[in-house]
Amino acid sequence: MHPLIVIAAKEFRDGLRNRWVAGATILLAALAFVLTIVGSSPTGMLDVKPLTVTVVSISSLTIFLVPLIALLLGYDAIVGEAERGCLLLMLTYPVSRAELLLGKFLGHASILAFATIVGYGGAGLAAAFRGGADAESWQAFSALLLSSIMLGLSFLALSYLISTIVKERSTAAGLAVGTWLLFVVVFDLALMGALVASKGGVWTDLFPKLLLLNPADAYRLFNLSAFDSVRKISGLGGLSASARFPAHVLLAVLAAWIVLPLAGALFTFSRRQA
């Protein structure tokens, strides 16, 4: 068996053992179910399928929760092993550093993907069962699952970057929480504040593009504006043309947010003193 697979499988089994998989799945499923049930009540006045409403509410939930789960899952991936002494040991095994890091990433990524698909999938099926769903709402829901996993992976990659840079586990934990605050809370507030302060002046064209500097915003724009029926109820119907990015651009931004931090993590890990 390839060492990459050996390490990834171990990481996933660790997730099963320490209840990470169960915990994340149940949390996502429970919240998604609540949103599905509560959120589908006002659909009567609009010609919108419950599944579409579910997409909007789940994507708002995801922006807060999935990055947090991903960061908590990955922040001690490298620095934790280093503190336990296992890193030193594993580096003397016939395994390259890249295999070690990517193997662990793959394992954590499967935990995230499993929790997202099972947790949200159940809620999606429930919504579809309650009020039916049309082809477009299913499409929107599949896109939601895919982009939620990508959002999780981008923050997982960020947490790996943190984990390879710092020397102590507690530093990594602090940075992980800081990263979450920055991208999920502070970034949008700062943008809005700047927009208000400049009274929508010369910056108007630039601001939407700045949203792409944040994976959470790319995710939000993708899920709330990619499908017409979703846009109708998400409040982004009146979004000006300048803020509308094609779906593939937003997905590419998310993908870049996975690849670049991961490449950074590989680079810093390769130079890290054992």
């Binding site: 390490i7 053992r17 003397t92 016939p94």
Partner: peptide, 24 residues
């Protein structure tokens, strides 16, 4: 190699631990 301070994962059994390192 046996490092000075190594703590294997607490939640794994001894058999699982040795199996993991054997595969590695």
């Amino acid at each position: 190699f046996l490092p000075e301070n190594v703590s294997f994962h607490d939640e794994m059994t001894g058999a699982d631990t040795i199996a993991f390192y054997a595969r590695l």
